[in-house]
């Protein structure tokens, strides 16, 4: 067994252990510190104050963090396999911006008030439009430069859409606040409603599981994968649909949270290698852990928004990655 195999076998239990630790920390850290014993009592309604804090504030926030972390990281992983480029991610390619633009349009036009499903649906529509544009602009196997330029152009275009909506509704304070929330990305005031909206991410994760092996073959190229017996068209369709919906749902409940889809799969690939059978579950749990950690950092650093923390971590990481890949 190679050293990488040994690391690969240990990676999932270690990541899951880290995930559990951060879940407990996420429930415990706040204006009122709750130790694990109080968290336990609160969860079983033996401690009324802890119970209120947990069920009304911290538990939904923690669950949304786990769901969007897993969705963004696995969405990034799928996009990297699809485009055969380790710098592809929902944020850099504009898919998250598409989701945010869709959500912002729904809020700006006042459609959000009609149904709680309007914003997620519009986020999915926006993300689909952006994904379609990326596919046209940068096909599979496209160079890093082409991919990034396509992402820059799309992000600028979709940014213009959100700015237009924002400038047209300057008088409606509440809508503006919501729009700004989406643009900055965050987990503040997340409720059980948001947990339900994001819950299809679990289904997406289940559907993603069997695609691990075909993704290995596809990441060598569509023609090679087809020669080996992969139904490329069907697998790629499923990959794209899942990556788009996962990213869109994450954006619909937490706004634009950048770099998760880039950093997490990339780091995991460096540690355990590129086999997707390992990377799919690891991305789900690793993404959840990363977002929980970033949220905790933000909460401990004077309530910094999640999107700001992930960008502060992800920006330098991305520049390092770019420098490394250009060597």
């Amino acid at each position: 067994m190679s050293p990488r195999d040994t690391v690969g076998r240990l990676a999932l239990p270690v990541t899951m252990a880290g995930w559990l630790v951060f879940m407990v920390l996420s429930l415990g850290v706040g204006d009122l510190w709750l130790n694990p014993a109080r968290i336990w009592s609160g969860l079983w309604h033996h401690d009324e104050l802890a119970s209120v804090i947990l069920y009304q504030i911290r538990l939904p926030r923690m669950l949304v963090a786990c769901l969007i972390g897993g969705a963004l990281a696995s969405g990034g992983l799928v996009m990297q396999a699809y485009f055969r480029n380790s710098l592809a991610s929902p944020g850099l390619l504009g898919v998250s911006s598409g989701g945010a633009a869709g959500a912002v349009v729904a809020i700006g036009m006042g459609w959000a008030a009609q149904s709680i499903l309007t914003v997620p649906i519009m986020a999915i529509v926006g993300a689909c439009v952006a994904t379609g544009a990326v596919i046209i602009l940068a096909r599979s196997g496209a160079s890093t430069e082409r991919l990034l330029l396509a992402g820059v152009a799309l992000n600028a275009l979709l940014g213009a859409v959100t700015s237009y909506v924002l400038s047209n509704f300057t008088l409606t304070y509440e809508r503006n606040a919501q729009i700004i929330f989406w643009l900055m990305g965050g987990l503040e005031d997340r409720t059980w409603e948001h947990v339900w909206i994001a819950s299809p991410i679990l289904l997406g994760a289940v559907l993603l599981w069997p695609l691990g092996r075909p993704m290995d073959l596809l990441s060598l190229g569509a023609t090679e994968a087809q020669s080996l017996g992969v139904n490329v068209r069907s697998v790629r369709r499923r990959m794209l649909a899942l990556a788009t919906v996962l990213s869109a749902l994450a954006t619909a409940v937490a706004g634009t949270v950048g770099f998760v889809g880039l950093i997490v799969p990339h780091l995991l690939r460096l540690i355990v290698g590129p086999e997707h059978k390992r990377l799919v579950p690891l991305s789900l749990f690793g993404g959840a852990t990363f977002v929980l950690a970033c949220d905790l950092i933000g909460r401990c650093a004077g309530n910094l928004r999640l999107g700001i923390v992930t960008s502060l971590v992800g920006g330098p990481f991305f520049l390092w990655l770019l420098r490394r890949s250009s060597r």
Binding site: S86, E224, S227, G229, P274
Partner: peptide, 27 residues
């Protein structure tokens, strides 16, 4: 069916491009 073709055909492409670091054995 595509899956059956994978058992009947082996294709070696002209270019050997690898973006990701799969081990030789896994390829």
């Amino acid at each position: 069916p595509v899956y059956d073709r994978g058992r009947q055909l082996a294709w070696v492409p002209q270019e050997a491009r690898f973006e990701f670091g799969f081990t030789v054995r896994s390829v």
